[in-house]
Design a protein around this nucleic acid. Structure first.
Length: 117
DNA sequence: CATGTGACGCCTG
DNA sequence: CCAGGCGCCACAT
């Protein structure tokens, strides 16, 4: 058996930085991709999403606590819809985060805004 | 080294 | 308020 099917699952330094930042988000609160990007001094919030998408430690690493700046839920486990999103909602509800019954958006006061330009 | 693809965000109309 | 368009950064090919 010499078949090397190993797919190098090691994390990039950037991902480690993002995951480290995630761990400082207290349970019961959420942050946004944009805020994380500011915190990490990255100009594109997209890069944050790219890192989170490959998070092999979810939900131990709480990537479910990251939502979009427009207060919609964002994605989970590499998907922007479907069962994965339902899981993210469930995770958030389990931590006491809930959604506006009208818009399905997360109320502003549940979002931590760390950045300050 | 060049190109394409996003779990995004902001600006305009 | 909603839709469309552009910018931006990391990563896979």
């Amino acid at each position: 058996m010499t078949g090397e099917c190993e797919k190098s699952k090691r994390l990039t330094p950037f991902q480690q930085k993002v995951f480290a930042a995630l761990q400082r988000i207290p349970k019961g609160k959420v942050t946004t991709y944009a805020d994380l990007s500011r915190l990490l001094k990255v100009r594109s919030p997209r890069a944050i999403g790219q890192a989170l998408k490959t998070n092999p430690f979810a939900p131990a690493i709480p990537c479910h606590r990251v939502v979009r700046s427009d207060r919609t839920i964002g994605g989970y486990l590499g998907k922007t819809g479907g069962a994965e999103l339902a899981q993210k909602r469930q995770q958030l509800l389990a931590e006491g985060i809930f959604f506006d019954p009208e818009t399905q958006k997360i109320p502003e006061y549940q979002i931590i805004r760390f950045s300050s330009p």
